[in-house]
Design a protein around this nucleic acid. Structure first.
Lengths: 240, 240
DNA sequence: ATTATTTTATGATATAAATCATGTTTTGCA
DNA sequence: TGCAAAACATGATTTATATCATAAAATAAT
């Protein structure tokens, strides 16, 4: 898609409400100003691509408000969603640090406000700012752990358990809507399948199974977790 | 196993032949000396545990000579090997950076010489040494990419392809023996299965299948890749 | 508004891979 | 050196999940 991206009002990083949730939480003063002054603030419409697998990275993306999926396409062209990003999350920095091309594609799951910091600015601040590199290392460490656990579950757990786990993960990541208690993300069944690592039909089938069992409630694309406790048991999380 | 670990002759890091292959490649002078002076050099016999999933990290392990498997045990107690380490590789740093317990277990695949650097020394040098934190970030980035790709393949590729891929990975990681051309690692069929993410019987079956097809040659635990080109095709690596 | 297209939903069927079962070989150990 | 235990090998069977097929519902496009 090549819908022209609109910009949104420039937010000064130091006033950004998401600052403390991000890797820039401990970055202050001049360092933060340099980033703030150099960045551009863009709106990505639902379905728009922030960056593409195989492409050259030119900077890092900082999600101000929105939801982004990060996915890898496998050999047969099937999408595997490897991560989800929300407010305060930073994307595309991994490729920059490793001096590689993007190994994943980032696509907006809904209209999102995203700030873009040029590569050289990010790297130069990173070089000076100790706390920032600490945060970056911490983030990478966390993501590596999560990926390795996900990998293990993919190898060992049946689809139903992984689906349950995914639903809990969605709740944890994006939360629920105020009143309705529906999960605050709208994913297609195919996307859920690509998150779980299964066929779309299987995901659909198991979702309606959980629905019939009264564990969840489905209303179109909306999903409500009715029996959280039971869902945890179905997910079979001995770990947490 | 609690076989008492023997130590080996203390190697000064600056003379270490593996230095340039490690994250300490750009660390010099005093910083390197501090590490070198504080470290202990231990021999781990085959099967010995360097550290355990769930345990508290007290330092980082630097493989001087040897082969180590890093694995996570899944809910049903099944081992999933998530990484393999060789000379020059550093282990256990992820947990330290994230201030978490180990999320994986490290076990020697053969008698190995491993240096141990205490946590506080590692962290204090890391805080001072810019190049080191750059290398750490680069390493984490690479490992994250690898984990995400592995995860995708686990979700999407059939066992046979993953097995082929694993064999190629073993060759790439540990190389082959001079004359014989056999892979320079001895893994049990179960370990191969736990690397591929399949049942032991399936791994055994597919290995002897590849053997009959003349792609590989089996001699006990020894494996020789006879037809590399064909194995790459079987692995179905559109990516590389 | 009407049609076309995509997404969701289920059923039927096929199949890859796990599990169970049994024998053989290798390895470690007393 | 011989015995027990572990690892390897293969066949038979089961099972989970993918694939194929078709229809209804929802979305998007004209």
């Amino acid at each position: 898609m090549s819908i022209p991206s609109k910009t949104f009002d420039h937010i000064n990083c130091s006033n950004c409400g998401k600052l403390n949730d991000s890797i820039f939480c401990c970055t202050h003063g001049e360092h933060l100003d340099v980033i703030s002054d150099s960045k551009t603030c863009t709106i990505y419409k639902k379905g728009q691509v922030l960056f593409n697998e195989g492409g050259h990275p030119f900077g890092v993306y900082c999600v101000n408000k929105g939801k982004i999926k990060i996915s890898i396409v496998g050999d047969e062209g099937k999408e595997q969603i490897v991560r989800l990003a929300k407010d305060g999350d930073v994307l595309g920095y991994r490729s920059i640090l490793a001096s590689e091309r993007y190994n994943a594609t980032a696509i907006a799951l809904e209209d999102s406000q995203v700030c873009f910091v040029p590569k050289d600015v990010f790297l130069s601040v990173l070089k000076e700012d100790r706390p920032l590199s600490g945060e970056v290392m911490k983030l990478l460490s966390t993501q590596l752990r999560e990926a390795e656990i996900k990998l293990t579950h993919l190898a060992q757990k049946p689809v139903r358990e992984r689906l349950a786990e995914t639903l809990l993960f969605l709740k944890e990541t994006y939360g629920t809507q105020e009143e309705s208690e529906f999960l605050d993300v709208q994913l297609s069944r195919e996307e859920i399948a690509n998150l779980v690592g299964t066929a779309t039909e299987t995901a659909i089938r198991l979702l309606s199974e959980l629905n019939k069992e009264g564990v969840i409630e489905l209303s179109g694309k909306k999903i409500k977790i009715v029996n959280h406790r039971l869902l945890v048991r179905i997910a079979n999380l001995n770990d947490y």
